[in-house]
Write a protein that binds this DNA or RNA. Sequence first.
DNA 1: CTTTCAGCCTGACGGC
DNA 2: TGCCGTCAGGCTGAAA
Length: 250
Amino acid sequence: MHHSQIFNPKLRYGVPSDLDRLNSTALTQVHRRAKYLLLEFAEHTLLCHLGMSGSFVICPASAAIGKHQHLRFNFGELDLRYNDPRRFGSVQWHNGKLQQRLDNLGPEPLTEAFSAHYLQAALARKGSAIKGAIMDQAIVVGVGNIYATEALFMAGIHPNTAANRIALSDLAALVGHIKHILQAAINLGGSTLNDYVNGQGQTGYFQQTLLVYGRSKQPCPVCTTPIQAVTIAGRTSSFCPQCQPLLTLE
DNA sequence: CTTTCAGCCTGACGGC
DNA sequence: TGCCGTCAGGCTGAAA
């Protein structure tokens, strides 16, 4: 990496002002853990998060700086640029404290470690809503509001169901649907908002296939009952009251 | 300990 | 046409 340039340091936490220490060192590896990217340079590592609208783009170094390109790393004829319309993302020096946080994250959802038995054990002492639990990154990472909402619908589980009162067979269905929907979304290029673009500047199409998310008051695609919405853990949760009954067994 | 919630930011959308 | 308020998302630190 030859040099870097900051156009707008106002990302989450601010962009480190001493990126110069990376000059003339190699970007050796890129890792991902949960929703974090680790850009590993020869002697230092950057921990990055794309927030909800961020993306890294590779483009000719001569290309005009886009309105939302806040940072560029120059590799000769090519640039690696950080683009983020809403600036919810972050770029920080990786350190021990941040590593500690990564260590406390739950398993990756697409690995065998995330299983029905694991989830049952993780939820054993959780009497709060299942929706909040599967969005808790200490339990499982990578499940945001859209996918949590959709997976609960597909599993027929009301989002307010007490997490520790769900049968193992239902947890197995939920785990299966979480894995399936995440893989399907990846295959289709992701969902999120209209202004999202991937590294090739393409938008995601997955949102066109969403069943209940964002469809409050519209008919359920399965039974035509109007979709309802409630707020759980500060997030809107759409669900079908017919397909996802709230069980109140003692 | 657990759980909730404001705040960060901007674009899309609805109402006037 | 444009302005204005509201909402959405992931995460953190503070409060309950």
